[in-house]
Every structure is written in C-alpha cells, then in structure tokens.
C-alpha cells in the first residue's frame, strides 16, 4: 500500500503537504510526530474516511486518484482491505461484543451467521476476551473495549489494520493488555499502521518509522536508525528529547 503526492486542506489550512509514503505488507509502520502534525489525517486517508484533494493511493491492483470522484466499488474494496481501530473504540453500543465482531462478516462479506460466530469466538479468545462474548460494550473496561475493536477489525481479514492512538485513552495497566495483542499481531506478520505517542512501544514494534511534522514527512525509514542517539536530524532529536526517551532506557 502506498500514497503519493497527497495534499489535504481543511479550510485554508494545508494539513498534508504533498506527502508520499509506502506501507510495506507484513510489516508494522509507526507514525509519530507532534500533536496536530497530520498523523490522523494520513491514517484516515488510508481508509478513505478523509478525502485528500489530490494525490494517488495504491493498494494491490487498486489505483485511486484522489482528484477524481471515487467509485463506490473502489471504496468498498479499500474498506474491506483496511480496517480502522479508533482511539475511542467506537464499538456499536446496541450490539453485544459477539455481534460487534460478527456484524461486518455477516453484513458486508455475506458470511453465514454460525460461521461468523464461530470465528468471532476464536478472535475474542485471541484477544483474551472469550468470556465477554455476550456482554454489552458499556460494561467493558477501556482496554477490553479496545481489544474487542481489534477483534472486530480482524474479523474482516483486512490486509492492513490502521490504529489511531489505540491506547491513549487507557491507563498504563490497561494499555499493556492492548499493546501485547498488537505485538502478537506484528509477530504474525499482520500489516499494521500505528499512530502512537508511546515511543517505547513504537521502538519495540516498528519495522518502519515515519516522523510527521507540520504536514510533511521528516523521516521515513528504518526504526533502529530513527531511535539511534546520533540521529543527525536536529528536529527529530528535539522531538525524542521532548518525549524524554532517555527516561525509558
């Protein structure tokens, strides 16, 4: 999956400035950068929740030119191949945990209900929530809700899972539950694109780091190099210092 020369403006504020990025399959790409730099906008563009004014999007054989009207069929293809996990979980409150997970497979993929439920139960077990299948979302903790959201996304078998600050709403303890699940997915070579402010986690999980600032890409490459203390980019060094990475070592 890749985007090329993407521009996005809100009002007269240019949020993405001609950015190009690729997201290698089977790898974990982590987007970091200061608040308001455009990370969420990039991520949401990958799921077409945001429509840039210009630029291109490529995913397998599918090609989308953002300056043209996007065909419904192409939107559906993208939405099937990518799944979004939101900071605020956004589970469907009127459905049980199990129904949250089976809704997409049954309604969108046309799976049989029994098959979808059997798989949903496996996925819930995988995220450690086998016993919560019949609960309603409002009875879950944040960490549990986010793991259900991940299971809901996994049930669609997306090529890429996009996660926008999946743990920023969580206490450190609950955060760990979710991060463990993500590390597990990364190990299974599930393609992930993660926006996070948790640099310790980024360092641990990322194959590739993208540093975004002010709508531009200041770093795009190997994770190891990014965190190397002798990074010669002063802006990145300042950012890393501001996030007090030192205290994590």
């Amino acid at each position: 999956m890749k985007i090329t020369k993407v521009n996005k403006t809100f009002g007269n504020h240019q949020v993405l400035k001609n950015i190009s990025l690729d997201f290698p399959a089977g790898k974990t790409t982590v987007l970091v950068g200061p608040s308001g730099s455009g990370k969420s906008t990039i991520l949401r563009s990958l799921d077409l929740l945001e429509r840039p004014e210009s630029g291109n999007f490529d995913l397998d054989e599918l090609h989308i030119d953002f300056s043209q009207k996007i065909k419904d069929a192409d939107i559906l293809t993208v939405r099937k191949k990518t799944g979004m996990v939101f900071q605020s979980y956004n589970l469907f409150p009127h459905f049980t945990v199990l129904q949250n997970v089976t809704e997409g497979p049954v309604q969108v993929l046309g799976k049989k209900k029994a098959d979808a439920e059997a798989e949903a139960k496996q996925l819930l077990a995988k995220v450690g929530l086998a016993d919560k299948a019949d609960f309603y979302p409002e009875t879950l903790s944040g960490g549990q809700a986010q793991r259900v959201a991940i299971a809901r996304s996994l049930a669609m078998h997306p090529e890429y899972i996009l996660l926008d600050e999946p743990t920023s709403a969580l206490d450190p303890e609950l955060e760990m539950e979710v991060l463990k699940v993500l590390l597990e997915l990364a190990k299974e070579k599930q393609s992930l694109v993660i926006v996070t402010h948790n640099l310790a986690f980024a360092r641990r999980v990322a194959d590739k780091i993208v540093f975004v600032e002010n709508g531009e890409i200041l770093y795009d490459g190997d994770a190891g190099k990014f965190f190397a203390q002798d990074n010669d980019n002063q802006r990145i060094q300042d950012f890393l210092n501001s996030m007090s990475l030192a205290s994590l070592d």
Partner: peptide, 15 residues
C-alpha cells in the same frame, strides 16, 4: 464516529 466505525468495516450508508 458510529458512522465511521461502520464505514471502516465496509458498510454502505443505507446499511
């Protein structure tokens, strides 16, 4: 966000 969550699993507007 409920619209977005549904969109993200591929549901169309009507559904």
């Amino acid at each position: 966000e409920q619209w977005e969550a549904a969109a993200s699993i591929g549901m169309n507007r009507g559904k």
